[in-house]
């Protein structure tokens, strides 16, 4: 099936179908949220910036959350050996990401003249932990799902 969104979709047909569902569900939730906000705006004053940001957050968190919890990211991790290898790779990937993010954020902080070590370490540690957790949950769910399919 030809669609402009095809370039975002994976090759595997099961994964593609699941992702299309997640995106469609996210789209419907976003639509409902916007309808509720339009109705609410007649009764209360709403900050447009906050509402738009909330809409983006709803769509992103929903689709990302569904994707992570569905266990379709690591499709080939089915044995304990593969899981442990993937976990080691995940740890080193997170460490590299934290270093690159840390350097980028440090440059931003210095150039924007808002240097504060508390802010810096707080942000880098939070991003690192969040990134690791999301990847770890996805890996764990994928492993559990794949193990049952062997």
């Amino acid at each position: 099936m030809k669609s402009w969104i095809s370039f975002l979709m994976p090759e595997d047909e099961y994964k593609e179908k699941k992702m299309l569902y997640f995106l469609a569900e996210g789209g419907v939730l976003l639509f409902l949220f916007l309808v509720i906000m339009i109705i609410s705006s007649n009764f209360i004053s709403l900050d447009t910036g906050v509402i738009l940001l909330a809409g983006i957050a709803i769509f992103l968190f929903y689709t990302l959350g569904r994707y992570i919890l569905s266990g379709i990211e690591h499709t080939d991790i089915a044995t304990e050996k593969e899981y442990k290898r993937a976990l080691r790779a995940l740890k080193s990937r997170t460490a590299s990401f934290v270093v690159v993010f840390g350097i980028g954020y440090l440059i931003y902080k210095i150039t924007s003249d808002q240097a504060s070590w508390y802010d810096f370490f707080g942000m880098v540690i939070s991003v690192g932990v969040l990134s690791f957790l999301l990847d770890f949950i996805s890996l764990k769910r994928s492993y559990k799902k794949n193990k049952e399919l062997l």
Binding site: E11, Y14, N146, L150
Partner: peptide
């Protein structure tokens, strides 16, 4: 041209 997970799901009748 699919993933191992997809083959597993087909074999189990879940996809």
């Amino acid at each position: 041209g699919v993933t191992r997970q997809t083959i597993g799901l087909i074999e189990k009748g879940e996809y």
